[in-house]
Amino acid sequence: MIEFDNLTFIYDNKPLMQHFTCCIARGEKAVLYGPSGHGKSTLLASVAGFVVPDEGSIRIDGRTLDTSTVQQVRRRTAWLPQEFTLPYDTVKEMIEAPFELRINQALKPSRTTVLEHFARLGLETELYDKRSIEISGGQRQRIMLLIAALLQKEIVLLDEPTSALDPDSIARVIDYIRTWHEATVLMVSHDNRLIDSFDRKIYIGD
């Protein structure tokens, strides 16, 4: 489904990644791991068209990602950048914001659905009505992850979604992601437990 064909990324006149080729099947859950500074996040961002490879191409369902297809691809992706939180006053507003976008409006979840996801991720019900400054980094990260799940996209791109989580919460996140049967997941992580839990591990390094 996602094909990286002979990709090269150059950063500051130095090659960040060279001749990378790989294919990720539909519904597969793949993790990109390896030392920092070798292009994991760049590779992830390239699937959403945020970084354009200096050489090679990316194909999604056989169609090359370029200026004519990037918008269609982004309609099918859920993207969660590293350590990112939506800048809204309350948790409720944070969760609702991505569903204000035209493409996601029909999927707007009910409070009950959101709270079911809260429970699966070990988040207390009261959090839903709290102000966003009152919640911890770990809670915030799980909320951003559940938004990605609720968007029900075909391709889910996650950049270190568990960096602020304790081992128990990471275990819950692993179980949570395993239930996204339909979605193709591509994730960057440095967390060994998370990396081990993925069937497909892609090492990015020397």
Partner: peptide, 17 residues
Amino acid sequence: ERQLYLYLLGNGASPGE
């Protein structure tokens, strides 16, 4: 707030949105 802009684009927002 580049991250917010990319977040919106990467989650299906139109260029205008």
